[in-house]
Design a binder for these strands. Structure first.
Lengths: 177, 177
DNA sequence: TTCGTTACCGAACGCTCTGTTCGATATTTA
DNA sequence: TAAATATCGAACAGAGCGTTCGGTAACGAA
């Protein structure tokens, strides 16, 4: 990939992230993005057809490492659920892209939607763990939603508790004694 | 209130709701709303300064009855939590404003935010019921988020299970045996 | 019914943003 | 070095925004 392309792409992402912390997604204009990124108008449209597709691309990049690659050293691919969840929290806290700021922004729900769709896959692999007398799809939906809420709460509180402890809180709420 | 005002307000709300089922909130233009509502441009702005304030006003109206007034006949003000939750579900299902369609639309998250803020108050009155070893604000956040997820799941599945049964599902997930 | 009040209409306004085009310029890769 | 290509920047038509204002029609009170 041409270095110029990477540089432009990075500048746009950075500008976009910066704006997202100041105002809501649907109030951000392409004009503002290219001003902030210091990029030509036509250049922006050469990279992204629309603002929505820019959002898609950024989500792809934000969550790629968290769910697919670059695993936390102390968590293997066959870790237990609690370990995996702690890993996700660890990743959010130490993200270089200020992921926590984005998830908590006024447009956080937009990113939460992507986040949840990835979480769903994780939980699907551990459904056997939960033995409750409710419909299976209800349970899955519940777990994904609950953990997403847990993450939001955790960030809002300044991520004071450790990833491990936070994951434990969540598991406590879902335990089937 | 002047009949003309009520008629206009109703037409705008109706048009807005109709559009929300077809496309995302931030893709809806004021132009489309006034076309659909068959209302003059200046008339719209006489009622609502911005599209965001229209959203606010509509949420106010949508959730007013659910949380404050017009209680379901078989649920008193001092009902237990499960009863209150069932009442809320009952209200969503039988709403004349197609509340379920709105909550499930592409912009459902916007309305969920309002919904959750009201739910918070309800759960706050019943925190004594839950005895779990996690921080109190974590617990409250968890309950509100979980129930919101439950509602979303319920609507998506076509509201097949009864409000009572659905409330029971939820309580099952949060029981502290 | 009458009459003063008030809400609506509709056209027009300057403005901002959109998404596209194109030739000139600068950078990169081979 | 040379060919390819990414960026720039200006310009464009089109759409939406939010406001203004005079004319019209519906309203509510007497």
């Amino acid at each position: 990939m041409d270095r110029r392309q990477l540089k432009t792409r990075k500048a746009i992402f950075q500008a976009f992230r910066s704006l997202l912390e100041k105002k809501r997604y649907d109030h951000i204009t392409v004009q503002e993005i290219i001003d902030e990124a210091d990029v030509g108008r036509s250049t922006f449209y050469a990279h992204f057809e629309t603002k929505d597709l820019l959002l898609d691309a950024m989500c792809e990049e934000l969550f790629y490492h968290m769910f697919e690659h670059d695993p936390c050293p102390w968590v293997g691919r066959d870790a237990d659920l609690e370990g995996k969840l702690a890993h996700i929290l660890w990743h959010i806290r130490d993200s270089k892209n200020d992921l926590s700021g984005i998830l908590l922004s006024d447009s956080g729900d937009l990113f939460m939607r992507y986040f949840k769709s990835h979480l769903r896959v994780v939980f699907e692999q551990h459904m056997g763990f939960f033995k409750v007398d409710v419909p299976c799809d209800f349970l899955l939906n519940h777990l994904v939603g609950s953990f997403a809420e847990t993450v939001q709460w955790w960030i809002k509180e300044g991520m004071k508790t450790s990833p491990e402890m936070t994951a434990k809180y969540f598991m406590t709420m879902t335990e089937t004694h």
